[in-house]
Design a protein around this nucleic acid. Structure first.
Length: 717
DNA sequence: TTAGGGTTAG
């Protein structure tokens, strides 16, 4: 249709009115390449005009709001037309083009044009500041705002709102406060938009009292005001107040619902978010693209595939399937809910930009090309499809998409899962080269990757090379030590964390308790279990309780472990019984093992695993003395047979192959999917002594780091 | 004013 119109247009190119109408049509349709083609046919010399005033028509095109943000190539073509036709002397044309450059984030062009302007007024200054905000240049925006005041130009509400946007995005609480004071003192007209931006500015700087005050003093409020103040309480985590405000808001529009539902998710009230979403369908406004993104994110988080599919149908009916955000949320939802193939299909049909290099960064962001890659890769890693994720990553690089910090984090996690040290190291080099080394998410993932690939030293180097107060970053290092049974080192790092007044979370405590357990540090374990509740107000969950049962059980304090289960009313948790049974077996307490297994069968009468455990214990009883020596190998074999089989255990074979195929003295890293047996563990100790090599063995649960005849697990695992 | 992708344990 557009092509047809364009070819028709070429026949009548001498008619300026027809040219302009077509141009406007293409602009509204936002067909980028066609617009530019149409512009190239635009009659430029005055003798080509048949009727009417071309200047007026041109100005009306500049002011005509397009459905989407203007594209840079289209605006520069318009600019060329204006130059050729001699329109640029006109103030409205100059301002119009400046505004379009600003909207497509072409800050360089805006600054150049602004510098060349003969007359600067409040409008041109405001356009310049908006361009800075759109481009994320908030510091520059503020310094230009100050230049404007020095020039004696009095700001209006729009300019001030833009200045507050700059202050909200950087560390300018002081500057923003002084502008607010100036508005008060000079009795400047203060409209709703400006007041909303002031609320938002205070909220971004955690100055919630001020935000609330501005809201309360507003003579009139719109949906944005209400949403902003609801957002303040969401940020504070005060969801009761947020709920009251949401109910009280007289202007509940679709964005109010979005803000509130999203706030519930941010505060981990996913069930409430789900209920509100149902309520919105019943009594609320129609969904917009934000609602769809939020709803899909919620389905992904709760792994509710059916709900996700219903939302998919709904968005198809309402025509939101081409929105880049929504599409990306769909890719995420399908992969997190286990339908990786569907997410791949949606990914393959995603919006492709005509020419990425010509577009501004914000426009590229809106098209979502890089983001879709990282979402898809994250989905594959999440589902454990490590090889596929790595293959997608190299395809992504081949297709010229940049490796951003998000993608690299997922790839580092993939290397950790697969325990592939060499690839992990290459990824780390790539991260440093691209300048992503300072990203805290990425650094945490790299620590975890090195630890899980068998190099605790490299993990430690990354940790020590960065000053950081992020709790996940610290927990990653503590978990790495715990994984290797280095309980004392784990405790040292945990103490450093407390000294720096970084707040440990519930996972940090699971990690430190498990470190104490693996290192047999009972007293310290009790200390942290109490500290967690008393000093940090963290209510212990089954994971914490289980660590304590494990800690006591491993040390042979079986009665204490039993009492702990009873005292804390953990009888209905199968996990603690399994832990206790394992400890009873290690310490050869058959009676206690039977007792615990019977408890387990009571709780899980339909679980085959419970009966297998129980029957194993009965089987063990037949020859307990023998089993206590060989319990980790095979129960019913003759001694000679056993010796032959033990020689072929995969870790021994791997080590033998490693020794003959690598340089003397280099470390060996071995991975296996089962727990190491006692015989292999003993043998490896001798091998490290005889060959003077370090051997790192990753089994199903943890690492064994052998050096000079000693293992970090101290023979306890 | 509100939206999508990343890290730690078990």
């Amino acid at each position: 249709m557009r092509r047809l119109l364009l070819s028709g247009h070429l026949k009548f190119q001498r008619s300026s009115h027809l040219s302009l109408s077509l141009l406007r049509f293409f602009h509204v349709q936002s067909a980028i390449s066609v617009q530019t083609d149409a512009l190239s046919q635009f009659p430029c010399s005055s003798d080509q005009w048949s009727v009417g005033d071309p200047l007026d028509d041109f100005i009306s095109i500049l002011k005509n709001p397009a459905k989407t943000l203007p594209v840079h190539s289209y605006v520069s073509s318009l600019h060329c037309v204006a130059l050729k036709a001699g329109f640029t002397e006109n103030v409205q044309v100059g301002t119009g083009i400046l505004n379009l450059y600003s909207k497509c984030s072409a800050l360089d062009h805006v600054r150049k044009m602004f510098d060349e302007l003969s007359q600067r007024n409040i409008l041109t200054w405001t356009i310049l500041l908006s361009a800075c905000v759109l481009r994320g240049e908030h510091e520059l925006g503020l310094s230009l705002f100050k230049c404007m005041l020095v020039d004696g130009v009095l700001p209006n509400c729009f300019t001030l709102a833009t200045a507050f946007k700059c202050c909200a995005k950087n560390s300018s609480l002081r500057v923003g406060k002084s502008i607010h004071g100036w508005i008060f003192r000079n009795d400047i007209e203060n409209d709703i938009i400006l007041q909303n931006s002031i609320i938002n500015f205070y909220a971004k700087h955690d100055a919630f009292g001020y935000a609330r005050k501005v809201f309360e003093l507003m003579p009139e409020r719109d949906a944005v005001s209400w949403n902003s103040i609801i957002g303040v309480h969401v940020q504070l985590g005060d969801m009761t107040a947020a709920m009251d405000l949401f109910r009280a808001s007289p202007s509940k529009d679709v964005s109010s619902w979005n803000t509130f539902i999203n706030g519930q998710m941010e505060n981990k009230f996913d069930q409430t978010a789900l209920e509100l979403l149902h309520l919105m369908v019943k009594i609320g406004p129609l969904f917009d693209q934000y609602t769809f993104s939020i709803a899909l994110a919620l389905s992904a988080k709760l792994a509710l595939l059916d709900l996700g599919k219903q939302i998919h149908c709904k968005l198809l009916r309402l025509g939101f399937e081409n929105d880049a955000f929504v599409k990306n949320s769909m890719i995420n939802m399908y992969s997190k809910c286990g339908e990786v193939e569907t997410s791949l299909i949606i990914f393959s049909n995603r919006v492709q930009s005509p020419n990425l290099s010509q577009l501004s960064p914000s426009f590229m962001g809106k098209l979502g090309n890089t983001i879709s890659w990282s979402t898809l890769i994250a989905g594959y890693v999440h589902k454990g499809f490590t090889e596929e994720a790595l293959a997608l990553f190299s395809r992504m690089l081949n297709e010229g998409a940049p490796a951003d910090a998000f993608t690299l984090t997922s790839i580092a996690a993939a290397c950790a899962d697969a325990g592939i040290f060499q690839q992990g190291r290459q990824i780390h080099a790539c991260i440093e080269k691209l300048g992503h080394g300072v990203d805290v998410f990425l650094a945490s993932a790299v620590i975890d990757m090195y630890a899980k690939c068998g190099s605790l030293d490299d993990a430690r180097k990354v940790f020590e090379g960065m000053e950081c107060t992020n709790i996940v970053f610290w927990t990653s290092m503590i978990a790495s030590y715990a994984l290797y049974g280095e309980g004392r080192e784990a405790i040292d790092v945990f103490q450093m964390l407390l000294e720096k007044r970084i707040m440990p979370n519930k996972i940090s405590f699971v990690v430190i308790l498990s470190a104490c357990s693996h290192a047999g540090l009972v007293e310290e374990g009790y200390k942290y279990f109490k500290m967690m509740q008393k000093d940090h107000g963290i209510v212990p969950t089954i994971e914490h309780f289980n660590c304590m049962v494990d800690l006591l059980g491993r040390q042979g304090l079986l009665d204490e472990a039993k009492n702990f289960i009873c005292e804390h009313n953990l009888r209905h948790h199968s996990l603690v019984w399994k832990t206790l049974i394992s400890a009873c077996r290690v310490h050869g307490d058959f009676e206690a093992a039977i007792w615990a297994s019977e408890k387990l069968v009571e709780i899980e009468p339909h679980e085959a695993g419970s009966y297998v455990l129980l029957s194993n214990i009965y089987a063990t009883k037949r020859d307990w003395a023998k089993v206590s020596r060989t319990d980790l190998v095979l129960h019913d074999l003759e001694e000679e047979q056993r010796e032959v089989i033990l020689q072929h255990h995969s870790e021994k074979l791997a080590i033998a192959y490693g020794i003959i195929s690598t340089p003397c003295g280099s470390p060996l890293r071995i991975m296996k999917n089962l727990r190491v047996c006692g015989d292999c563990h003993e043998a490896i100790k001798y091998v490290t002594q005889a060959t003077d090599r370090e051997i790192v063995l990753r089994d199903a649960y943890r690492f064994h780091h052998f050096k000079h005849g000693i293992c970090t697990c101290r023979d306890y695992w």
